[in-house]
């Protein structure tokens, strides 16, 4: 709690570069939590979440430039649009299982990328920048904008984290874990598998699009390759979750910290940096298949965020 307060107050103590980095960390953490909810809890391993990141980003640009919505409202609207879009997409890709599901999501993301690359009004394949007037509408001063986008990022992260936490603690979260453990037994107990997965997929899509909007509100420039990058919005996110510990709430936090530590120290080495990331991933998977957090939790039997109803036991 203190840590969160301390972080919320960052604009008063941190420099511009740190602020920007922290904002990026929060958004990555949000993406990681969302991917973890899908893959780690609902068993849907998607490699196509960049579809919604990019969609959210492009919708921010389109809705502000052509509809004239203020940026924050545009992000909200794009989340709703992403949810609406996720329903028919889910009905397509839910026919696929396992590896085929993963590939299917990737194909969808590529379709998104190619589609947005065709839209000339949004700069086609080379992309576009957010007009200055819209940027200015956020806050007139540069530092005002920077703290605003920082607050939006940390707010989004807290929103994502808290909603996932409460969702998983609810009866539906229980059903979700049951589905992951044993689909047959869960359906025999009256859990509607299709609907539960659909809910998770749609909510994840909406929140991912909102995060995408925030990411490109920070960047102020969008292009199809950046918006729908499988590397940036899925591979790194999977790295974070797997390193940290898939299927745990703490995992993505640890993973994000590790990822940014590695990135900030090694980014200057170019492709060697990516090779080291790969090496770390391989090592963790061999030495601690349940991620760093899984390893810690097993060794010391602790949970920072009790998910197993331990707190309720003395009722």
């Amino acid at each position: 709690m203190l840590v969160v307060l301390f972080l919320v107050a960052a604009p008063w103590w941190a420099g511009r570069a740190e602020l920007r980095l922290l904002g990026e960390i929060y958004l990555y953490l949000s993406l990681a939590c969302l991917w973890n909810l899908m893959a780690g809890y609902a068993g849907m391993v998607s490699v196509g979440q960049q579809a919604y990141v990019g969609f959210g980003g492009y919708m921010l640009f389109a809705l502000t430039m052509f509809v004239g919505l203020p940026p924050i409202a545009a992000i909200g609207v794009s989340a709703v649009l992403a949810a609406a879009l996720a329903v028919p997409i889910a009905s397509l890709i839910f026919r696929l299982n396992g590896a085929y599901f993963a590939i299917g999501t990737w194909v969808i993301a590529e379709v998104f990328r190619l589609t947005f690359a065709q839209v000339n009004a949004l700069g086609g394949g080379s992309g576009t920048s957010l007009p200055v007037s819209i940027v200015k509408s956020l806050a007139s001063s540069r530092s005002g904008r920077e703290s605003l986008s920082y607050f939006l990022a940390i707010g989004a992260m807290i929103l994502v984290f808290v909603s996932i936490y409460f969702f998983l603690r609810s009866k539906r979260g229980l059903a979700l874990t049951a589905i992951r453990d044993n689909e047959t037994a869960a359906s025999g107990l009256g859990v509607n598998i299709w609907r539960t997965k659909l809910e998770v997929y749609v909510v994840t899509a909406a929140l991912t699009a909102a995060i995408g909007g925030l990411i490109f509100l920070q960047k102020l420039r969008i292009s199809p390759d950046a918006a729908f990058s499988v590397n940036d919005w899925t591979a790194f996110v999977i790295f974070i979750v797997v390193i940290g510990g898939i299927g745990t709430l703490e995992g993505p936090i640890i993973g994000t910290i590790l990822f940014f530590l590695l990135r900030e120290t090694l980014a200057d080495y170019g492709s060697a940096y990516l090779m080291i990331l790969g090496l770390v991933a391989i090592l963790v998977m061999i030495k601690a298949p349940r991620g760093v957090w899984g390893w810690i939790a097993q060794k010391y039997d602790i949970e920072l965020l009790p998910m197993r109803y331990r707190v309720q036991l003395d009722k």
Partner: peptide
Amino acid sequence: PEGRQLFPSLSVEENLKLGSTVG
């Protein structure tokens, strides 16, 4: 079910609670 098919990541009580999903 044959072989019991409990949910390994859930506690005993959570397993039982899932039984009441049907309402």
